[in-house]
Amino acid sequence: MSTKPAALYHRIVVWALFAMLLLPLLGTFLYSISTSWSATVLPDGLTLKWYIQLWTEPRFLNAFLQSILVCVGALLLATVLILPLLFVVHYHFPKLDGLMNVLILLPFAVPPVVSSVGLLQLYGSGPLAMTGTPWILVGCYFTIALPFMYRAITNNLLAINIRDLMDAAHLLGASTWKAALLVILPNLRKGLVVSLLLSFSFLFAEFVFANLLVGTRYETLQVYLNNMRNSSGHFSSALVISYFFFVLMFTWIANRLNRDRG
């Protein structure tokens, strides 16, 4: 019986913290659907005008599409490179996993502002001039997504016991690469999808590299949000809520897939 008051207290604390975190978002949402809201506790009226204006503006739609294209391009590059690398490391050179865990975290050791300055110097001119183009963002986002994907897929590989599966496939006459494609890869499907969705949510919110390396020459959603900060508060609130909803949707899908996998 003594555990019931404690459990109730814990629930109250959790829900109170949840309400504190949700309250600013709720206020932003109400402001985004209000006609005006100044001297009253609640908005004077409700409208979807700001969302209609946002989702019919070509500049916003273009920035939204460009953000998706850059993120998808970086994740495709990461998938093509990281899957064969992980297979080779875990199947042929498992002792290298410790070294890879250190190397894979190096992108987080250097602040994005410092990395951006170095990249501007390196790719600002010359034969590899890519500053202001989406290609430099794809490369930067690839390094950001790499640690997330490496850890998620590594955990998946450890869970399925890759060596036993490969030995069984070899006994049945499959070659190494045929076994990797037809046996190992299907077992990594959910882990790969979860890592891609979580990485996409993180990359979609990236601002420093996008602002410093390309700016308005290839305007992503975060750069657009920064450029529109001095516009109507209702319009900016609708933009923030739309962005938050999109990221929340991808995060929720990733969490559901991760739960199903467990």
Score class of each variant (00 low, 15 high):
236 S>L: 12
100 M>K: 08
181 L>T: 13
150 Y>A: 07
52 I>S: 14
61 L>Q: 06
143 T>R: 02
109 A>G: 01
179 A>P: 11
30 L>E: 07
209 F>C: 05
204 F>T: 01
63 A>G: 01
214 V>I: 06
226 N>D: 08
29 F>H: 01
26 L>I: 07
203 L>D: 12
4 K>V: 15
162 I>A: 02
184 I>N: 04
119 L>F: 10
25 L>D: 10
211 N>K: 06
117 V>M: 14
51 Y>N: 10
119 L>C: 08
215 G>F: 00
13 V>M: 14
180 A>D: 00
142 F>E: 06
172 L>S: 13
245 F>T: 15
219 E>A: 06
93 F>A: 12
69 L>A: 12
81 L>G: 04
149 M>E: 08
218 Y>T: 00
222 Q>R: 02
74 A>C: 10
10 H>S: 14
112 P>G: 11
209 F>N: 05
32 S>R: 04
220 T>F: 07
121 Q>L: 14
157 L>D: 00
158 L>M: 07
16 A>N: 05
169 A>E: 00
35 T>I: 08
72 V>H: 00
252 W>R: 15
3 T>N: 11
52 I>F: 12
80 V>Q: 05
104 I>Y: 03
114 V>P: 05
19 A>C: 12
121 Q>I: 14
131 T>P: 03
241 I>A: 02
85 L>K: 00
201 S>R: 05
134 P>T: 02
240 V>G: 03
128 L>P: 00
154 T>K: 13
147 P>I: 03
85 L>S: 11
175 S>C: 00
46 L>N: 02
98 G>C: 03
44 D>W: 06
211 N>L: 02
38 S>W: 07
245 F>H: 06
15 W>H: 15
261 R>I: 09
111 P>C: 10
158 L>P: 00
158 L>K: 15
8 L>P: 03
203 L>I: 12
165 L>G: 09
161 N>W: 05
253 I>P: 05
243 Y>I: 13
9 Y>F: 15
80 V>G: 04
255 N>C: 03
34 S>V: 00
192 L>K: 10
251 T>A: 12
104 I>G: 05
